[in-house]
Simulated assay, not measured.
Amino acid sequence: MFKIGYRTIKTAIGAPIAIFIAQLLQLDYAISAAVITMLCIQTTRRASYLKAWSRFYSFLIGVTIGGLVFEFIGYSPLTFSLTLLLFIPLAVKLKATEGIITSTVIILHIYNAGALTVGLFINEVILLSIGITIGIVLNLYMPSLTDDLVTIRKEIENNFSRILHEVARFIETGDHSWSGEELAETAQLLEKAQELANKDVENHLLRTRHPYIDYFHMREKQFEILERMLPFITHLNATDNQYKYIAKLFEDLSKNVHPGDTSIQYLERLRTIRQRFNKEELPVSREEFERQANLYILLNEIEQYLTLKRSIKSFK
């Protein structure tokens, strides 16, 4: 069963309303009001306002170039082509690309009329105003992304828990059966999460930051650390009892992946582990030296992982 998105619903509502108003005002090319409305319905409120200005700006550029070319050179397919060759690069240079299609439609109206008159100019301004206004009004409603953000946050946290659990299991037993699929999935989820959080910011005109942006950025950095840890962990000897307390730390971390801050207690445990590690006898072989070096690097990575969590305020 196919799903109808909210932008489709807005388009289905706004387009006929635009035509109705344009016909009520007895405007020429009334159907174009629907096209403009469809182009003005954006994914966020902020995008609607910014692109509305871009369309007006582009409209003035297009009408000016089209009017001058047509009036001084003539109305023909070649002059229409020349108009586009001048208009489109200039619109791009002046950062008014969002209005290129809308303005091209209006240029075609001028071409079809065979003359740029005051009446035609006013007609096009009203058409543009109708389309932009209806698009902005419809974009005042934007579905809340809070539930989506909470859902994806929980999915990321569940994956973190699984990864940490599998790390603990490997250190303790040397079991290599984990497929690691959570790694690829988490990378995709983090990318999607940042997109959703940024989109939610764009839907609030007075909001410049979002708590979830910082939270997902923190998880992204922690995920990078987890990925860096894995090669060092594979070099630990699972049969050596001295690594059991490291496995216990990872297992406990896996049970406490949530928005709250429990990093202080784990940093204290890490400090105790370091003290224990420093009291151990010096390695007598190259293999033991490499294992202890890997463990030392691993402890530093865990510390960075926990320190990142402290930088984010707890929230629900």
Rank of each mutant, 00 (worst) to 15 (best):
R7N: 13
T8E: 10
I9Y: 01
I9M: 11
I13A: 10
A18E: 04
F20D: 05
Q23N: 05
Q26T: 09
D28E: 11
A30N: 00
V35G: 04
L39R: 06
L39W: 00
L39C: 00
C40L: 07
I41Q: 02
I41V: 04
T43W: 02
T44Y: 08
A47T: 07
Y49P: 07
W53M: 08
R55D: 01
I61D: 03
I65P: 07
G67Y: 05
V69T: 04
F70L: 07
S76H: 01
P77M: 06
T79A: 02
S81T: 10
T83Q: 09
L84W: 07
I88Q: 03
P89H: 00
P89V: 00
L90T: 08
A91W: 01
A96S: 01
E98K: 01
T102G: 04
T102L: 11
V105I: 10
H109K: 01
N112W: 09
A113H: 08
G114L: 03
A115N: 10
L116Q: 00
V125A: 05
S129D: 01
I132T: 00
V137S: 13
N139D: 12
S144M: 13
T146S: 15
L149V: 06
T151K: 15
R153Q: 12
I156N: 10
F160E: 11
R162P: 10
I163F: 12
L164A: 03
R169P: 03
R169H: 07
F170R: 15
D175V: 00
E181P: 14
E185V: 14
Q188E: 15
Q188F: 14
L189C: 02
L190Y: 15
Q194P: 07
Q194D: 05
E195P: 12
L196A: 08
D200E: 15
E202K: 13
H204D: 09
L205H: 08
H210E: 03
H210Q: 05
P211A: 14
Y215K: 08
Y215H: 05
M218I: 08
R219Q: 04
R219I: 04
E220T: 15
E220A: 12
R228Q: 12
M229W: 09
P231V: 05
I233V: 14
T234W: 14
A238T: 04
D240C: 14
Q242C: 13
Y243L: 02
K248E: 12
K248M: 12
L253D: 07
V257E: 06
T262A: 10
S263L: 04
Y266W: 05
E268P: 00
L270C: 03
R271D: 13
I273Q: 07
F277Y: 12
E281I: 09
S285C: 10
F289Y: 14
R291V: 11
A293N: 11
L295K: 12
Y296I: 08
I297L: 13
I297D: 13
L298V: 04
N300E: 14
Q304H: 15
Y305H: 04
L308Y: 12
K309N: 03
S311M: 11
